[in-house]
């Protein structure tokens, strides 16, 4: 194991986050705070409780998950795309480092950043609503597992993209709609039966539901199903990345 290389990539990426603290940390915290102001305080105060949880508190796990997914993807995608764009990828490809070590460095840094943002949002949320985390270890497990899984997805997007437009396309056109339709702001039990079944094809439902369960003990789908789906997605991403390095797709001629 080339630990020096993993550390070099990890800290290089982390220092980039600190250079762009406005974009990396302040921006997601600000936008989430606005969600709390609008949905939690202004609209939420006029809405009924959901499964015994105030609306403001109900949306906290979903909002954290929304930022966790988008931040994980964009951090990891940009992390690997930037050296491809500038041409500095030559150094990574010529270094004595295995694909696994490259992934640990980039995905580890991306996941660390998004977990940090998630925890900051959690702290921010506690200023607006009363939070009660019933299963803190499950909450942390979902946080880490989701951050790693979607950072892996971001890494794939960063290798697949051949321009900044494509880099933004999946997070904007796929992940954000799936997150909004994945029970971030509502319980899927509030939907008509047909749409409840359709929604079950949305992988984000399982993430939000499992994460919400760790806060309030309530969930739209079984917690085991949530955990299982997250693991399946993690394995799919790992499989795709393994294939990318085996074939040199978009990396090596």
């Amino acid at each position: 194991m080339n630990l020096h290389a993993v550390k070099a990539i990890y800290f290089f990426e982390m220092s980039r986050a600190l250079r762009t603290v406005m974009q990396s940390i302040i921006s997601p915290v600000l936008s989430t705070s606005l969600y709390f102001v609008v949905f939690g305080a202004a609209i939420g105060s006029r809405m009924a409780q959901i499964d015994g949880v105030s609306y403001g508190a109900f949306i906290v796990p979903g909002l954290i998950m929304l930022q966790l997914l988008t931040q994980s993807i964009s951090n990891a995608a940009f992390g690997i795309y930037f050296p491809r764009f500038t041409g500095t990828i030559y150094e990574l490809l010529s270094a004595p480092i295995s694909p696994l070590e490259i992934v640990i460095g980039y995905v580890g840094a991306a996941a660390t950043k998004s977990i940090g943002v998630g925890l900051i949002i959690l702290g921010t949320a506690s200023l607006f609503v009363d939070l009660n985390i019933q299963h803190p270890f499950s909450m942390l497990a979902f946080l880490v597992l989701t951050a790693v899984t979607f950072s892996l997805l971001g890494f794939i997007i960063g290798i697949w993209a051949d321009g900044f437009e494509k880099l933004q396309a999946i997070p904007l056109l796929v992940v954000t709609p799936l997150t909004f339709l994945g029970g971030t702001f509502y319980s899927i039990n509030m939907l008509p039966p047909f749409w409840q079944k359709v929604t079950l094809f949305n992988p984000v439902v399982y993430l939000v539901s499992g994460f919400r369960w760790s806060f309030y003990g309530i969930s739209d789908v079984n917690i085991v199903a949530s955990l299982g789906m997250t693991f399946v997605f993690l394995l799919v991403c790992l499989g795709v990345i393994w294939r990318i390095f085996a074939t040199g797709y978009r990396l090596k001629a």
Partner: peptide
């Protein structure tokens, strides 16, 4: 472009183990 000279050279050393 955004990295410092020192940071870039130190990064390369680490990358090569």
């Amino acid at each position: 472009a955004f990295e410092t000279v020192w940071g870039a050279v130190s990064f390369s050393r680490g990358l090569f183990g």
